[in-house]
């Protein structure tokens, strides 16, 4: 059987020490038995390593930063599409998803470019600030959380929380406070940096386990692979990890994907409490950087996503191999100045 030729735009080529998922997604697509992919890299910066990985990325174009807005992005995609005839785009950055989700109907209708993304409402529903409500709605335990808008509110929370508790910023930062006084001081510190609201969250101690999963948008979980980090970098990123056999976790992941009718890839971050209960800490709305482990375990999630994006029927995976490891490594590419010049001056390479 000859493979189906497709042109796919992929972002997240920053395969650095805290990597984006672009290159792992591309490797997965290149491994496909079904597709013969031409990869169009979409980059934001000139030093994203993927730009120069010509065995994986056939051609790269710079695209405007998300803050430039959808009209700039659409104009750039129109240009790229006029040359490359894209069949599908797989965005991989949190910050760009809002714009791609907004544009996806236009891309489909006017340019026949497929995407496979959650609806804006789904995307918003798993934000850190509303995750507790997300958990209630989708029948998954989430540490109890409440948004506050001033440090004085800490003292009104005494009937709702016990110490220690977690003080979290809207986007980043989290600290564990053992007393109200400590909590107030963290609230002040974090709000100075990220503003309000601040999220006060129940502290759950235990081990972190993550799941990379993919949903069909109709309530079916196509695949899910649980993984525990074996070694983390000083940025908290997995350096090595191992796939787990954990039916309970798979069942929870299936339930979250099914109830939320999630469309596309996602990463579920759980903590397994000392009592053996799973709490959802975060849901990232795209594949994680370790998604290639799914291929290693026998479930090619990016390939499944591409199939669904193109309207090809996909059956849910039934099994995977546990005990497979991924071990990341760094690699120095040698690049000529003329390549750097091309991407810098023309925005294409």
């Amino acid at each position: 059987m000859s493979k189906k030729k497709v042109v796919v735009g992929v972002t997240g080529l920053n395969n650095i020490d805290s990597p984006g998922p672009g290159i792992p997604v591309i490797r997965a697509l290149k491994d496909s038995e079904y597709f013969d992919v031409r990869i169009i890299g979409l980059s934001y910066e000139t030093l994203e390593p993927g730009i120069y990985m010509h065995d994986l990325v056939d051609k790269t174009y710079q695209i405007p930063m998300p803050s430039a807005g959808t009209s700039s992005l659409l104009e750039r995609i129109q240009y790229i599409h006029s040359i490359e005839k894209l069949d599908c785009i797989i965005p991989n950055f949190d910050a760009e998803l809002h714009n791609f989700i907004k544009l996806s109907p236009t891309l489909k209708k006017d340019y026949q470019i497929a995407t496979f993304l959650p609806e804006l409402e789904q995307f918003e529903s798993r934000h850190k600030s509303v995750l507790f409500e997300f958990g209630e709605k989708n029948d998954v335990k989430v540490p109890f959380a409440k948004m506050i808008f001033s440090p004085s509110e800490i003292y009104q929370l005494e009937d709702k929380f016990t110490y220690p508790l977690v003080v979290k910023g809207k986007y980043y930062d989290a600290s564990i406070a053992s007393t109200p006084e400590q909590a107030v001081s963290y609230v002040n510190k974090i709000s100075a940096k990220w503003g309000y609201p601040i999220i006060i969250q129940e502290f759950v101690s235990g081990n972190e386990v993550n799941v990379t999963a993919i949903g069909d948008g109709k309530g079916k979980c196509i695949g899910a692979i649980p993984m525990r980090k074996l070694y983390i970098t000083d940025k908290g990123k997995a350096w090595a990890g191992v796939s787990l056999e954990d039916n309970q976790l798979i069942e929870i992941a299936n339930r979250v994907i099914a109830n939320s009718k999630w469309r596309g890839g996602c990463e579920l971050e759980f903590i397994k409490s000392n009592k053996g209960e799973y709490y959802l800490l975060e849901m990232n709305p795209r594949f994680p950087a370790w998604v290639y482990l799914s291929v290693g375990c026998g479930q090619n999630h990016p390939e499944a996503l591409l199939k669904m994006a193109l309207g090809i029927d996909v059956k849910a995976f039934e099994s995977y191999e546990s005990g497979k490891l991924f071990i990341r490594y760094a690699y120095d590419q040698i690049v000529s100045l003329s390549e750097f010049e091309k991407i810098s001056t023309f925005g294409e390479l």
Partner: peptide, 15 residues
């Protein structure tokens, strides 16, 4: 100077 991390100008013509 070509800095990384600054806004790239490609595709921001509408701006």
């Amino acid at each position: 100077k070509l800095n990384t991390g600054t806004m790239n100008k490609f595709g921001t013509k509408t701006e």
